[in-house]
Write a protein that binds this DNA or RNA. Structure first.
Lengths: 249, 249
DNA sequence: GCTTGACTCTAACGTTACGTAAGGGTTTAG
DNA sequence: CTAAACCCTTACGTAACGTTAGAGTCAAGC
C-alpha cells in the first residue's frame, strides 16, 4: 500500500513541504511516482523517514544524514544502537541543564552570584559533537567514496555490465591461481590490472588506499562474502596479494 | 569587571558572531561600548545570555525570547521555574524516543513490522508546543502591547508626565464616583475619555479590547494593584464600568 | 616609539531547512 | 459533472547565524 504526501504527513508529523524538500535533495525519494506526478511512499520509505527524523533529532544536517543512510556500510541495527547512545548522551546533557536551573533557583533565593563558568558549563555540546563525529566517521562516506559516486553517476547500464564482467573474469582468474603464492608474478599481474581498473572506473587510487581496501576484504563481512563465496580463503588471499602489490609500488 | 566578546565567547560557548547578531537584533545589548566601539559585557549581561540560551535550548525563537525577556511582567524566578518544567517535558519526550528505538531494535530482531503511528508517535512535539505557547502567553507581549511600544517609543519625558497626570486625575474622579452605579452617565463619561485616551496615546483600541482590558484589571494582580491601592474594590468597579461602556458601543 | 600579532569592528553575501504564496492540474464524493 | 480536497512545480521569503573582506585597536616587547 502506497501513501500520498498527506498521508505521510499525517503519520509522521512532517509537513508536505518537508517531504518535497527531502525529495528535491535526494534524501527521501518516494518509491513510486504516479502517472499524474503524485509522490507515493512505501513502507520502506516510512522506515527511512523515521531514520531521518532520528538523525535530525540528534542534530545531524540533512547532508550528513544522506551520506550516512546512503553509505554502503549502513545497517539499520547499528544505526539504532547509535541512536540509543546519542539519545542517552542528550538525556545526560538535559539532566545537567536541569541541575543548573535548580542551582540557579537556589542561588537566586540565597541572593548569591554564580561563577561564570558554572553558569554555562551544562550547555556544552562538545561531548555531543564528538559522538556525532564518531557516528559520521563510522559510516560516513570518505572523500574517495564521494569521488566514486561522482564518477559512477554517469555510467550507463552497458558500462556497468562491462565493468562487472571484467571484474568477474578477474576474480575467476585469481581463484584459479590460489594454489600459488600471493606474490607470484601471475597473481601480481592481475593485481596491477585490478588497481588500474579502480583508478579508471571508480576513484583515483593510491597504493595505500589499495592496501587498505585489501584489509577491508577480510575485515568487513559485506566485502568478504564477495570473495569467500567464490572460493573459501580467497578474501585473505586477496588481502595478501594486494598488500604485496601496494608495497612494491 | 567588563568582558570583551572573546571572553564572553570563552565563558558561554556562543560564537562572537552570535553576540554580534544578538546585539544587532537588540536581544543582548552590551552594557557598555568602549571608545573604540568594543562591546563590553557586564555580569548582568551574562545572566541575560544564560536566560537566552535556556529559552533557545527549549526551542523559542529569538524574537519570542526578546518579547519574553523585555516583557514588563518578566521575573527571573518564574522563568527558572518555567525552564524546569519545559526541560522536564523535553526529557519526557526523549524517554519516549529512547523507548521507540528500543522497540525498533526488538522489532528488527524478531523480523516484525511496526504500525505506522507507533513509528512516529514519540516524535510528537505538540505537547511541547503547548507548554511553549503557554509560556509565551504568560509573559509575552500581545500585538496590542507591541503597537503600544512603537507608539510610546517616541514620547518625551514631558509627554509622559502629562499623560500620567491625566490618568491620575481620571482615577481620582472615578474613585469619587464609586458610590454610584458603574453605568451612571458621569462614570460612563470618564470611560469615554479613558477609551479615547488609550486610542490616542497607546494603541488602536476596540470596544472588545477595552472590555478585555477591564477583565485584566481584576485578573492580573500587577494591574489590579494600580486601582486597589487608590480605593478597595476599585479594580472591579472599573471592570464593570468598562464592560458597560464597551457593550453600548 | 614603533612594530607585531592578537583582537576588534562593520558591511555584506552565503547557507540550511524549510515556510509561504501563486498558478495550475487531478481525484473523488455527491 | 461539478465542487471540494488534493496534488504538482516554481520561486521568493525567513531565521539564525557562518564566513570572508577590509580596516581600526591594543598590549607586549625590542
Amino acid at each position: 500500500m502506497r501513501l500520498t504526501v498527506k498521508q505521510v504527513k499525517e503519520a509522521s508529523g512532517q509537513s508536505v513541504r518537508t517531504l518535497h524538500h527531502y525529495d528535491a535533495i535526494g534524501l527521501l525519494r518516494p518509491d513510486e511516482i504516479s502517472a499524474a506526478g503524485y509522490r507515493l511512499y512505501s513502507a520502506d520509505d516510512l522506515e527511512r523517514l523515521q531514520q531521518i527524523m532520528f538523525f535530525k533529532e540528534l542534530g545531524f544536517s540533512l547532508a550528513d544524514i544522506k551520506d550516512i543512510l546512503d553509505s554502503p556500510g549502513f545497517d539499520r541495527r547499528g544505526a539504532f544502537l547509535e541512536h540509543l547512545e546519542l539519545l542517552r548522551q542528550k538525556q545526560h546533557r538535559l539532566n545537567g541543564l536541569i541541575k543548573l536551573v535548580e542551582h540557579n533557583l537556589e542561588a537566586l533565593d540565597k541572593g548569591e552570584k554564580m561563577t561564570e563558568d558554572k553558569m554555562f558549563d551544562a550547555f556544552d555540546e562538545a561531548t555531543m559533537e564528538e559522538y556525532k563525529q564518531e557516528a559520521k566517521e563510522r559510516w560516513g562516506n570518505t572523500d574517495a567514496y564521494k569521488e566514486s559516486m561522482r564518477k559512477t553517476a554517469t555510467y550507463s547500464k552497458e558500462d556497468w555490465t562491462r565493468i562487472a564482467a571484467a571484474e568477474t573474469d578477474r576474480r575467476e582468474r585469481i581463484a584459479a591461481l590460489m594454489d600459488k603464492d600471493p606474490g607470484d608474478p601471475a597473481v601480481q599481474a592481475i593485481m596491477e590490472e585490478f588497481f588500474k581498473s579502480i583508478c579508471e572506473h571508480y576513484y583515483s587510487c593510491t597504493p595505500e588506499i589499495f592496501k587498505n581496501l585489501g584489509e577491508m576484504y577480510v575485515a568487513d563481512p559485506r566485502f568478504a562474502k564477495n570473495y569467500e563465496t567464490i572460493k573459501p580463503g580467497m578474501a585473505d588471499f586477496m588481502r595478501q596479494a594486494m598488500a604485496i602489490y601496494a608495497d612494491k609500488k
